[in-house]
């Protein structure tokens, strides 16, 4: 692909006294793409983000943002990047407008421009009506939206979004996705860290799956899902998934691997038509109340399971 590289990461290693948070990570992010970073807790997503934001020094390796080295030209990098961390970065006792004006000042925006841009961004994240309310009174979703508006104050070409929807209810999450899609449409390059496979799948052009400080797979969501193989997924939705049920269904699954939650079991097969009735029968025999049984395509979660043998969340 002859596309322009916005962010390049080479053999990045980060060690916090004793713990290896990154064990040699390499990838390129192209201009204008949404690059998903999918991984469970402790995978090293935040560490990677902080290095790219220019606030954390890597132990070894190299990273560049828009051609600037994140260590040697840290200030240039920070001026170009919009950083939206996991935590609320607004000062709770101040109102949304005061927070925007403060961050605008940090980026050296003159007052009048700061005011104009703050208004514009608060409008964009639909917080203009409550701009004079102390942030303390905001809901979780509103705080996240303010975080996003703050990250955009310097009109950054590259956006680093660290778990922008963690802890939000499904509606607020969909809302956030809508903003991210809007930002992509404006041509910004976005690095999106998440541990929601659905989020990575839906928003990303490409996804890097991370685990224990390594990138274990990197491709478009479609290609990744295809890598699970020619397998189909049968999802049995029950009132309560008992151990007996999991055992029975695991016997029907390819390699014996299943993915299960409180009220569902996913099993994998090359021959869904033959296995589906058997699965229903096994479920009934295990004494579980069936809510639904369906055949579906693999998800990124299935990819992670196949690669690590563990669940994502």
């Amino acid at each position: 692909m002859g596309r322009e590289v916005a962010v390049s990461v080479r053999e990045l290693v980060k060690e916090y006294d004793g713990t290896l948070a990154l064990r040699g990570v390499s990838f390129d992010i192209y201009k204008g793409e949404v690059f998903g970073l999918l991984g469970p807790n402790g995978a090293g997503k935040t560490t990677l983000m902080n290095i790219l934001a220019g606030i954390l020094l890597p132990t070894s390796g190299k990273a560049e943002v828009l051609g600037h080295d994140v260590v040697r030209e840290s200030r240039a990098v920070r001026a170009l990047v919009g950083f939206c961390p996991q935590e609320t970065v607004a000062y709770e006792e101040l109102n949304a407008m005061e927070n925007m004006m403060f961050y605008a000042g940090l980026y050296g925006l003159p007052r009048s421009e700061a005011k104009r841009r703050s208004k514009e961004l608060l409008e964009f994240v639909r917080l203009l009506d409550v701009a004079k309310k102390p942030v303390r009174e905001f809901s979780g979703g509103m705080k996240r939206r303010l975080n996003l508006a703050i990250a955009l104050i310097n009109d950054p070409e590259v956006l680093l979004l660290d778990e922008p929807t963690t802890g939000l209810d499904p509606r607020a999450r969909r809302d956030a996705w809508h903003y991210i899609e809007g930002l992509k449409a404006e041509g910004r390059t976005i690095l999106l860290a998440t541990h929601y496979m659905e989020e990575a799948d839906r928003l990303s052009d490409r996804v890097a799956i991370m685990d224990l400080g390594r990138v274990i797979a990197l491709d478009t969501p479609e290609a990744l899902k295809k890598s699970v193989g020619e397998l189909s997924v049968i999802e049995v939705h029950v009132e309560e998934a008992s151990e007996a049920l999991k055992e029975a269904l695991s016997a029907l699954s390819e390699n014996g691997k299943i993915l299960s939650g409180e009220d569902y079991v996913r099993l994998y097969t090359r021959d869904p038509e033959a296995v589906l009735p058997k699965a229903v029968e096994a479920t009934l025999r295990a004494g579980a109340k069936v809510i639904s049984v369906s055949v579906s395509e693999p998800t990124l979660e299935d990819v992670f399971l196949k690669l690590t043998g563990r669940r994502l969340e």
Binding site: R78, P85, L106, G108
Partner: peptide, 12 residues
């Protein structure tokens, strides 16, 4: 307050 990193992520 968890704001320190965000502050230092600005070009200051």
């Amino acid at each position: 307050r968890k704001t320190l990193r965000r502050l230092m992520a600005a070009p200051i």
